[in-house]
Design a protein around this nucleic acid. Structure first.
Lengths: 148, 148
DNA sequence: TTGCTCCTCACGTCACGTGAGGTGGC
DNA sequence: TTGCTCCTCACGTCACGTGAGGTGGC
């Protein structure tokens, strides 16, 4: 039911597809996290592509899962873009030494994100264990009501 | 190095022990999430116990991991307290039918929290898989630089 | 033409951060 | 007595929510 005509997506379509609101999209644009695909005259409608949907989903997921400020998130996204740029350089053909340097930088960047993810996962797992334990105790009492 | 004298912890000790700030503690008090242990005259210092440290840590962890508003979190904490009250009733001796009802309510409450935790964990795992995949691709290229 | 969504201010809100000015306990 | 931490306003900030008033595309 989304409008996907020749002109691309409108801000409401983008927001719905990513599970957010037009206001948030404009705010992210203001902070430089997300730009409309096409140039637009002052006051004209913003248009977006499916790639923008992916990027916005990516932003929202990182924000929710990593719990960083939008400014830090902007730096992270810049690092991602730099990484993509280096991949293009890589594919365009670089010297073996340069290729190696590019790959190692990419590895470091991925490992930093993984460290953030792992820390969160460990915290979540700690909470899960606690809840599991409590659940097991309650279940035991329900199945075998033999206590003081 | 924390002051743990006769009078209990001061707000700064509590905040440090829980990894937050005095301002946050006062704000949570304002919202009714956390009260100083002892009564206090207007303008007098707030005092806390080790139990308050545990409660504050609990609040902070739930907030960070479940991503809920402080109002929702307040409801969740009330449910926890009600559960604790029912456990006291349980131990004080209730009829078998009443005991069963108490346990089943506790189970429902635990399962609701588990559902929230599991949703977050699944999202985190999705991101982790993506990062792992990218990492593996980069590693392969580093170990065997044979491509176009 | 009628709705609907879009546009740009701009003020409100939630969860605090950050001084301003003053009082209280080792 | 000297620092340090505490106290209560109260304004600032970040990440948006929510109208206010107006314009643009099926």
């Amino acid at each position: 039911v989304a409008a996907v005509g020749e002109k691309g997506l409108r801000i409401g379509d983008l927001a719905r597809a990513a599970g957010t609101t037009p206001r948030t999209v404009r705010y992210y644009e203001e902070l430089g996290l997300l730009k409309p695909s096409a140039e637009r005259a002052a006051g004209a409608h913003r248009t977006y592509t499916e790639d923008d949907v992916e990027r916005l989903r990516h932003i929202i997921r990182l924000k929710g899962l990593l719990g960083v400020s939008l400014e830090e998130l902007g730096e992270l996204l810049e690092a991602e873009e730099a990484s993509a740029a280096r991949r293009a350089e890589y594919r365009a053909g670089a010297t073996p030494a340069r290729k190696r340097a590019i790959l190692e930088e990419a590895l470091g960047y991925i490992d930093r994100q993984l460290a953030l993810v792992d820390r969160r996962a460990a915290e979540l797992d700690g909470l899960r264990r606690e809840l599991d334990e409590r659940r097991a105790r309650v279940r035991d009492l329900l199945e075998d009501p033999a206590d003081a």
